[in-house]
Design a binder for these strands. Sequence first.
DNA 1: GTCTATAGCGGGATAGAC
DNA 2: GTCTATCCCGCTATAGAC
Lengths: 195, 195
Amino acid sequence: MQTDQRIVVAMAELLRRQGYAATGIKQVVAAAEAPIGSVYHHFPGGKRAVAEAALRQSGAAYGELVTALLAPHDDLVDGIESAFAEAAATIEQTGWVNMCPVSTVAGEVADAEPALREVSAEVFDEWITQGVGLFRERGLSDDDARSLIIAVITALEGAFVMARTLRSGEPVLAAGRSVAAYARTLTTPATVSAG
Amino acid sequence: MQTDQRIVVAMAELLRRQGYAATGIKQVVAAAEAPIGSVYHHFPGGKRAVAEAALRQSGAAYGELVTALLAPHDDLVDGIESAFAEAAATIEQTGWVNMCPVSTVAGEVADAEPALREVSAEVFDEWITQGVGLFRERGLSDDDARSLIIAVITALEGAFVMARTLRSGEPVLAAGRSVAAYARTLTTPATVSAG
DNA sequence: GTCTATAGCGGGATAGAC
DNA sequence: GTCTATCCCGCTATAGAC
């Protein structure tokens, strides 16, 4: 792998574990087995530029992963349930490490790092666009599809934080039940019984 | 206000904006209008001890806030819908600052700061306990109550991160719709129509 | 107990040899 | 273009005057 790629990959790995502020450039080059000068040769913007590249790359990969988990299921509810179950298993097996750096980083940079907030926002927007497309194929209206994919993403993000903190897969499973129930109401018009 | 209290409050405020690693003790004492020596006099554990106190205090206050938003409503679904709507309005009015430092900090310290992860876990557990009590009073079973409060918390957490990043209240509203739909399925047994 | 000056360290970034 | 040695700054934490 090329030096610049190794740097980006190492940054992404550290970002999802520690966030942006706690991750040092020296730590990144040690993990990437690269000399520190290479960072500033390939990324004149320094630490921030490396982080931007890492967020974009990981964001795209993670968006494809979620799509790949949902796409095989013709039924929305089935797809969502299996995606959350898969996520719960993965995060537990990997020792409670976040699956994607975007969620870890977005919260700490939303106010203090405009450039990184902007990149994170672009990643979220791409995920939403992909999800809207997928859910529209399953018969949802534009508004419902958009509302549902946002519910899926926010539930996953929030559940990951709690799961890593509690060292338990329970939050991911509970969040999955919740979003699946919402998806069910959007696909099968329920008749509410009185009382 | 006492010096130690001002220090804790200033730390909490900075934590919810920037997270733990990016927040400096010098920044905290400047905001608290206290000499730096006071930090180590009142908190021998230094920065980490101040952050622990800030997380506990903010966690308790935020738990009471959510309870106060939910408690007045006899109907679960009404309470959840109004709580999320209130949250969306608040985060927008305050310039997209997070309402609570726990969610901002938990993600970045889950792997690297065991003491802070532990405190964050205690805060989450307290929120869950409070929510289970509240939802049981509304007639839910233990399991349903626990699943629902976890869904509420994770949805709020995840939605706040996305809202701050996108500078939009939409994620909080979408998350609220999703959780409210889940609560509705737990309270009103729905008859699903075929097709 | 309050407060200041400073130590000691690690951060990001750079200059310049090769 | 690769890589190393170093700079300079800001950090946490401390020592000690008051």
